[in-house]
Amino acid sequence: MTAIATGPHHLQLTREGQLRHFLTLDGLGRELLTDILDTADSFIEVGERTIKKVPLLRGRTVVNLFFESSTRTRSTFELAAKRLSADVLNLDISTSATSKGESLADTLYNLEAMASDMFVVRHAQSGAPHFIAESVTPKVAIINAGDGRHAHPTQAMLDMLTIRQHKKTFAGLKVAIVGDVLHSRVARSQIRALNELGVAEVRVIAPGTLLPRDVEALGCTVEYDMLRGMKDLDVVIMLRLQKERMEGALLPSEGEFYRLYGLDRAKLALAKPDCIVMHPGPINRGVEIESAVADGPQSVILNQVTNGIAIRMAVMSMAMGGQLAERQQALNDMAKQEVRL
């Protein structure tokens, strides 16, 4: 193996630099991120046609492996795979084989034996998709649909697509991420993507109890006071309050959180007049965001959902393409060897 194909961040790239898994945004440069956004733009056009389907993944089998339930993410992945003409299998693993005592690896080997080409993996454990790509089924393309507190790269990329649609370019933008950064895998991926794509400033706005200790090292500034933090913003990204992940008393109360960090019309008025409002969903109205803002003219929350399908079509077709190109390369190499023998 050549040097470029080794190391944790190159697990997801072929020798030629094509995507073959999509696990994290770490190690992916601006050019590849831009290729993903451009490809997604083309898939948006496909989604506007009478027949919203292209034949790229025809005859391929995509398995949605959700070890942690999520309706929206799973359905957009399912729709994306179907629009690429793949056959799709949805497995809610939390309620199936593992409860009968089968190990994760055994479950995956079985799925691989059914000639699966791609696993879309969501797992509560950080690093689970990496582990699968590296050690369990390296010949199956792995797409990370959210792992623990680590990463949620397709969500971050659909957010980047939404920002680019509304702001045309990333240069000079001031973007804030507000809320529960500590428990958010989305925030980590967003900060990484925004910096790589060259925004002017990424600002996180949150109480100290909802920030990871090393947050500035991720490449952002920190603001505890939302009234100050809203100044000059082009984009504000609200995070969901991860109630089901909350352990211990990190918050005084939901009401208190809303008063200090909820996005209402008064706080939004402090940002630039054309500041767009984003939220990964599902939204807790009156907890993170006022209904009038979520449904207001600056909200692009439903655009994010539409873009989610296009981004997932882009990374799925790119990763599948990389896998297939790699297989072809291996066949060619083998043929050359035989000639030499």
Binding site: Q18, D35, D38, T39, D41, S42, I44, E45, V46, V54, P55, L56, S317, M318, M320, G321, G322, L324, A325, Q328
Partner: peptide, 22 residues
Amino acid sequence: DISFYRDDFSRIGLNPKVKPSS
């Protein structure tokens, strides 16, 4: 832009410079 309909996808992967058809 015929990139999504090419028959060599399984050999070379997706054209990274695809643009939307219009």
